[in-house]
């Protein structure tokens, strides 16, 4: 805790109820970390459901996982990792006060984010065309049966896999959309030159959020796409 009793001259970014700029920044950073803790539990509820159903219906999960497009999944993971790099470099640029570089990196991040969402859209559309969306029109006949499953796969249990797939990727995509919104906001202010080496907390905590959403995908990728990719037969 930093409590400097001396009233230092400060810029307009210091809000009245904080004693110092450090205190304000530490509060914002802790706030974001706590928010990310709630986000872990938010996704945690779905991971819990995933764990249990994967134990129960492994064959259906394996078959569902095989039907996902590994190429697009891998590319999307790479896209997100690139976006995380541009965010990390962006925070650095803000700390060093390089406004132009910061603006470019923020634009790149948004582009990567939109690319991710676009690819996700392509994948979802593919699922729609193959009738893999849970509901009345769901059709599991085209799915490859894993070689070791002697009883075949239960189409209704298969719907559980796809329900989780859409719930998890859907809520992740929603977080991406919010992230793109946040970064558009940051871009606007970076453009105006609001962030300086002394004041760049919004970039820093916005970056934390973006990295978190990246980490969620880092887990979703193997859990949804790579359950069972062993060669058949």
């Amino acid at each position: 805790m930093s409590d400097s009793p001396i009233a230092v001259e400060h810029g307009p970014e210091l809000r009245h109820h904080f004693a110092s700029v450090e205190q304000q920044r530490d509060a914002a950073s802790l706030g974001m970390w706590l928010f990310l803790a709630t986000e872990i539990m938010f996704f945690g509820g779905m991971f819990c459901a995933y764990l249990i159903y994967r134990m129960w219906y492994f064959n259906e999960f394996a078959a569902g996982s095989r039907s996902l497009n590994l190429k697009w999944g891998t590319i999307n993971t790479i896209v997100l990792i690139c976006s995380s790099l541009t965010v990390a470099l962006g925070v650095r640029a803000a700390q060093m006060g390089k406004r132009k570089l910061l603006v470019i990196l923020l634009i790149l991040t948004i582009v990567f984010g939109l690319a991710f969402l676009g690819i996700k859209g392509i994948e979802w559309h593919e699922k729609y065309e193959h009738h893999h969306i849970p509901g009345a029109s769901f059709d599991a006949t085209a799915l490859e049966k894993p070689p070791y499953s002697n009883g075949g796969i239960d189409p209704s249990h298969e719907q559980i896999y796809f329900s989780l797939y859409f719930a998890m990727t859907g809520l992740h995509a929603l977080h991406m959309i919010i992230g793109v919104g946040i970064f558009a906001f940051l871009l606007f202010h970076a453009w105006k030159g609001r962030y300086t080496p002394q004041y760049n907390t919004p970039i820093e905590i916005g970056g934390l959020y973006w990295h978190f959403v990246d980490i969620v995908w880092i887990y979703l990728f193997p859990l949804l796409y790579l359950i069972d990719r062993k060669p058949l037969g």
């Binding site: 709630t38 986000e39 539990m41 938010f42 996704f43 945690g44 509820g45 779905m46 459901a49 159903y53 849970p134 509901g135 009345a136 209704s156 719907q159 559980i160 329900s163 989780l164 859409f166 719930a167 809520l171």
Partner: peptide, 22 residues
């Protein structure tokens, strides 16, 4: 705690609206 309730309710709503079956 609250986020777990939040996601659970989201899944219930998804089940009613979108026909997911968790």
């Amino acid at each position: 705690g609250t986020p777990v309730l939040a996601v659970t309710l989201v899944l219930v709503v998804c089940e009613r609206v979108l026909g997911l079956g968790i």
